[in-house]
Design a protein around this nucleic acid. Structure first.
Lengths: 189, 189
DNA sequence: AAGCGCTCTTGATAAAAATCAAGAAATTAA
DNA sequence: TTAATTTCTTGATTTTTATCAAGAGCGCTT
């Protein structure tokens, strides 16, 4: 679980004994391609760190799917709102490829707070970071055209473009696959 | 400061002595119309609860202004990212009307954590709530047309429509004032 | 290798939204 | 109250994006 340790250490700088304790609560799990991590209506009862693979967060709305995000190696996946407030989730989270995860249950996750004094502080920082990412995303919708959103996302996530179906990236950027394809053609030439 | 007390009590359910302590750290402040709460590039060093009035959060970009949000009575105003990570803010926050606030400095705010054991836990919940709101907003951009966003926002924030310039609401919903005006005309008839 | 399903591309067309420009309407100031 | 300023509306036009439809490319399976 070196990657997970590295992540927690670098982001949260907890001391070694706490770090080991936290990491020990995560178990290795896997998902086969197309299996679900979470389904609409369920309450999210786990948090996972992605060791390898891709997961797509989406909803189905009137016969079409809207992809909210694609998560991959080195990031966490969960439904924060559902995990924290114990509400039913709106999202489906499905594996786009075979996926390896380090997973902690909600119960164990909640226990950490009792064992490590600064945990809520760290959690706060983690959620605040997620908040900041969303804030940037909203701003991109208020201030950029589809083409600009494409360009910006491409510059920051080149790898993704040859590893997952492009239609999902189109959706998460708020455009149709056709528009995505036309913009892409322009950028390539 | 009854409103502020009510808010903290109902959202965070802290015990009475803690509640009084927290509230005592807030000071009454005011802003005249058009004065700034925060300006682009500054580090946000305060958190305020709005007693009365309206504040607009916006940025200037290539000669035009993009409004990110309008905050009003009964809500908090700050730049969370800047407050927590001590980074320079991208936003301007300006009073749209004369405004009364209950304001706590970053220093005092940070002190609460040392004095009230569950504070970070409560902070976490607060930020998670903000996260959820942004998540909904992104989803509205991925799944709704300008007209649908108008309708949805109108249904949930009717009051705002006759209290602040509509161009700002247009901008925060991601459309031009002209488009906003045309949609509005349709909805009125 | 042929057939199937899925993804991506392309073209034609329609719809949505932005832009530009002018003028009302409403607010604020003199 | 009138003038000045700001905000909102309207129309004409352009640009952007979505929709619809068809076909190309590609990997899988058998």
């Amino acid at each position: 679980m070196t990657e997970l340790e590295e992540y927690i250490k670098s982001y949260f700088g907890v001391k070694q004994t706490d770090l080991e304790h936290i990491v020990s609560l995560f178990k290795e799990t896997t998902l086969k391609k197309d299996e679900y991590f979470l389904k609409t209506g369920q309450s999210c009862n786990k948090l996972s760190f992605i060791k390898s693979g891709f997961l797509r967060i989406y909803v189905t709305q009137e016969d079409k799917e809207i992809t909210q995000w694609i998560s991959t190696t080195g990031y966490f996946v969960t439904d924060l709102s559902s995990l924290i407030f114990e509400t039913p989730t709106r999202w489906n989270i499905q594996a786009l490829t075979d996926t390896e995860l380090y997973t902690i249950s909600k119960e164990d996750y909640q226990k950490i707070g009792n064992l490590i004094s600064q945990w809520h502080q760290l959690e706060k920082l983690f959620i605040a970071r997620c908040f900041t990412i969303l804030e940037d995303r909203i701003f991109s919708h208020l201030s950029m055209t589809a083409e600009e959103r494409y360009q910006f996302f491409f510059n920051h996530n080149k790898e993704l473009f040859n590893q997952v179906p492009l239609q999902y990236i189109a959706s998460m950027l708020g455009m149709t696959p056709e528009t995505f394809s036309r913009i892409r053609k322009k950028q390539l030439s």
